[in-house]
Simulated scan of single mutants.
Amino acid sequence: MLPTHGRYEYVPIVGRPDYCWPGEKRLAVYIALNLEHFAFGEGLGAELAPGGPQPDVLNYAWRDYGNRVGAWRMLELFDELKLPVSVLVNSEIYGYCPQLMDAFRARGDEVVGHGRTNAERQGVLDEAAERALIAEATTIIERHEGKRPQGWLGPWISESRLTPDLLQEAGYRYVLDWCADDQPIWMKTRQGRILAMPYPQEINDIPAIAARKVEGDVFADMIVDAFEEMLRQSENQPLVFGIALHAYIVGQPHRLRHLRRALSHIASRRDDIWLTHAGAIATHALAQPEGVVP
């Protein structure tokens, strides 16, 4: 037998219990915007070009463009199209650029925990240190937002073998780290269970643009093609379509232009879908009778 995580069982997408999203919709759609802050001169960070010795000014400044410019341009686009957003926030953002979180708060957007900074991975920490990281990020978000976040995405999708346990014990209801399904699914924890919410690694600008080196026009086509195909597939099962974005990547003008095209296409179909926050999707799934969510 191969080693396994033991968190969930194999349940094929076909033949599962059926249910609908609010309004009898079959496809739930959410936008996940990652707002991240990075250490200068040390730590991890996505790269536009191969980084040299620290301080890596080129890549640090490129990432910082997202908070200074890109996210604000994206806010204008979200307002223009009346799109809700789930903001996946490094807690260090509150100290660095609080005006940005003020703007999303004014829109009523959901805030999701995303660690302290994407300059570090939580999965390499021991249990006590990882628990402390989760507690620190959660406390800072609660202090500023007036409520605790319900969802979590690890920085760099980094998990230890105990992460789902620690998140459940910290009061989190759902986690976005596992891209194994197009529906919410239950994951076992040592003191109960936590919902794994679909979070895309294909319709995600870091793997697509930073890793596979496609450009904004291709990424926008990917969004539209995946959306239309999943809308068709959702005739048979209720599905979740997420779009994962980073302000320093698609907030760049030449990519934002294509993102506008893709999001306008989705907005034009709003009567056919449930356009919402990740947390609202999780809440609806949690309200289903026992045995409906696999």
Rank of each mutant, 00 (worst) to 15 (best):
N34W: 01
H144L: 06
E9N: 14
G66Q: 00
D181T: 07
E169R: 13
D64E: 13
Q288T: 09
A285H: 04
D205R: 05
L100M: 10
P98V: 04
G279V: 03
R193P: 11
P53R: 10
G123F: 01
L245Q: 00
D56L: 02
I243P: 00
H246W: 04
G216C: 07
V124D: 14
F40G: 01
P53M: 08
L133F: 10
N236C: 15
T163A: 08
M197V: 08
L153C: 07
Y60S: 03
E215Q: 14
A247Y: 00
G95M: 01
N67G: 06
D221L: 05
E215D: 14
R270N: 08
S86I: 04
C20K: 15
P53T: 05
E110S: 04
H114A: 00
P22Q: 08
V69T: 12
G115V: 00
A267C: 12
H37V: 12
V14T: 15
V214K: 07
V214E: 03
L166H: 04
R257F: 15
N90M: 03
R260F: 08
Y174F: 13
P289K: 14
R255P: 01
H37K: 14
N204A: 13
E120F: 09
W156I: 03
Y248V: 03
P98T: 05
N118A: 11
E290D: 15
M1W: 12
D205Q: 13
P12F: 06
G51I: 01
Y19C: 06
P207C: 05
A220V: 02
D205F: 10
A61V: 14
W62I: 02
V224S: 05
L256T: 01
K25F: 02
T138P: 08
E290A: 13
W72M: 10
M187F: 10
R105E: 15
D181G: 05
L58E: 06
D221R: 13
P238D: 05
P294M: 12
A220M: 13
A119E: 00
G23L: 11
H5K: 15
L35A: 06
L44Q: 03
E130Q: 12
G95N: 01
I185Q: 10
E228V: 09
G6P: 06
P12Y: 08
A128S: 14
R105I: 10
A49M: 12
A49N: 15
G146V: 06
P164R: 07
G242E: 00
E130I: 07
L125M: 12
A210K: 10
L245F: 03
E42I: 14
A196Q: 09
K188A: 11
A129T: 13
E80S: 11
D56P: 03
